[in-house]
Design a protein around this nucleic acid. Sequence first.
DNA 1: TCCACTTTCACAACGCTGTTGCCAAAGTGC
DNA 2: GCACTTTGGCAACAGCGTTGTGAAAGTGGA
Lengths: 375, 375
Amino acid sequence: MDRTNAGAEAGTGRTGLTGAAGVNLPVLRSHNTALVLDLLRTAGAEGISRLELAERTGLTPQAVSKITARLRDEGLATEAGRRASTGGKPPTVLRLVPEAGHAVGLHLDRDELRAVMVDLTGTVVGERRTSLDLGAGAEAVVDAVAEEAGALMVGASGAGSVLGVGIALPGPLDHNRGVLHRVTGFPEWDGFPLRDALARRLGGPVVVDKDTNAAALGLAVSGESGSFAYLHLATGLGAGLVIGGAVHRGARTGAGEFGHQVVQLDGPPCGCGGRGCVEALCLAAVAHGALDEAAHVLGTAAGNLVALLDIDLVLLGGRTITAAPDTFLRGVRTVLTERAERLGEDPVPVRLASGGVAEGAAQLVLARLFSPSRA
Amino acid sequence: MDRTNAGAEAGTGRTGLTGAAGVNLPVLRSHNTALVLDLLRTAGAEGISRLELAERTGLTPQAVSKITARLRDEGLATEAGRRASTGGKPPTVLRLVPEAGHAVGLHLDRDELRAVMVDLTGTVVGERRTSLDLGAGAEAVVDAVAEEAGALMVGASGAGSVLGVGIALPGPLDHNRGVLHRVTGFPEWDGFPLRDALARRLGGPVVVDKDTNAAALGLAVSGESGSFAYLHLATGLGAGLVIGGAVHRGARTGAGEFGHQVVQLDGPPCGCGGRGCVEALCLAAVAHGALDEAAHVLGTAAGNLVALLDIDLVLLGGRTITAAPDTFLRGVRTVLTERAERLGEDPVPVRLASGGVAEGAAQLVLARLFSPSRA
DNA sequence: TCCACTTTCACAACGCTGTTGCCAAAGTGC
DNA sequence: GCACTTTGGCAACAGCGTTGTGAAAGTGGA
């Protein structure tokens, strides 16, 4: 992490301004630059021509030429051959330079820590995995995390260009301040300023987020567009919401509390103190081997979400889902299709999510480069 | 409607671009201008000084001076005296010129049509009300709407400066295209291009939206900030969602389908074909005089919404609510407070909504002036 | 009464942004 | 070959917010 300006206060998220922010020329410049970088990333190894960038951004070709010239100077982009002519001068293809920047992503699960180093395109260039006891106390966990992240940064090829570290872990937390709250099953974490603690240890920007949000961001980057919900069913049930390409976190960054949506008034009690929560109903059904019932309950809650937010897509993930993917896909699809038929609409597609949480955590860091406005 | 460029294609909503849009200088200019106008509107009759505008927007005082000079040239803003000195030159106070522009807002309910003309500050300067049969056929309704809107525009003082007409009506519809869908109880409206039909008749921009969205927008303009949900309980149950100051409509502009959130698996059948919908449960309880139960059900669904989106505020409105406001406030608050206590959070406030739907419909038009990016 | 000081805000010069006009490069197709 | 199309660089330009300077108009102490 060689940025002199990198410190604990980086990655704060929102600006502290009360209202909406004015746009001055530096803001305009960085916005358009990020937009071009994002399109370069999306284009992948194939690349994209200047003229196409101009069409997609709505900027003039000349503006795009200026921006891409800057990016080439900075080493972030490069020319990559030419495409076949369509009757005139063949377009020069531009592409991202993957090794121009890297990010570390960590996934802290209840019993395991997975760390990856990715390049600018999101490709994993280094990986470590170790067992971890989230209940072993803050110091031990911070030590382990710093060790793994440090080892990746030293060992991997792009150690000199690491932009920051992203961390995903279960349970609600304060994304803006990087403070943990109510990590399920580990009350001792409540109030721990994980971001600042790690930023001091690692000496670079650190971003902390809920695991489902990281997973959703990873999915958004790897091709899922528009608005979708990522539903994660494992030891618990949670969601990550992407609305208009941006992760929706809400005012206190607690959005996506999907597991405790009540779908059965006066239903069986849930560990949260409420009654009839989806999580409780789903997990009880799974425990009894009634996977069809679990899928039906999950589908009903997903239907509520689709109706409320009018999203484009539902993605399913988590160990319980991957243990019986077809059952859950079928069950959720059935509920959503019935709903759509009643309304005369096309049903919202339901698919399995692919991609790791650690990779998504790394995207928390890269988001500042490619889409600062929707990070 | 004296804008030469005003036509049926105005008010389309989103740009057709696939991805995010580049920001060029005209976009930057109009964004900052709208931002200043919005702050002037918020300041109201008191006004606001240039320096304060600079602080709030993040722009330099000089940039604000340039922008406000343009606004004064255009007649949208004016100087309004001075404030007391705080040790130096006393600040000159700027305020909006209310009569510089007007908008017509219409609320088409099942049996009534209410039309208002508002000035730039949202103050009602003209009002008409007439009975209406939404089932009388498209032609008759369009005639009635055109008549009322026309009468307001001719009769009111600011007839020459009407920016457009906003229309709110029940049921899901396509806000982007201005086409109706599934107006509850009136299937004959399905697919009717209301916006274009009225734009031709009235010769100016027309914006169409769901009544709950219009009400929510009206509330957002009249002081409610941040993210909130407006829940409307009358002959049906619907919601308008405001996320980050902007009305959330979703991909197919169908978001806010709150009435058919399922909160009772295998509950009693609902008119929508589903089972255990909040609307059915709530209205059944109201019909039996069990208002406490209705409020509890409503509160549970509101709790789901708060958990999922992490919003700041819940606002209640609609005839059924206003018939027994305390009962519903108490019931919803109880559920939300219990939930907050379980999580160790502050409970989300619940309040009664104030403001008419027609006024909110007028804001659909004004939004293009004050906040085009979040219209 | 005078004068130093603060605050507000306008004017002029400036730097940076995207834009326009022009032209060279490099192909296709008749 | 030659006309044509498409791509994209260079230079001049216009428009935006920014910086520097100073006038205007108060306060408050000497």
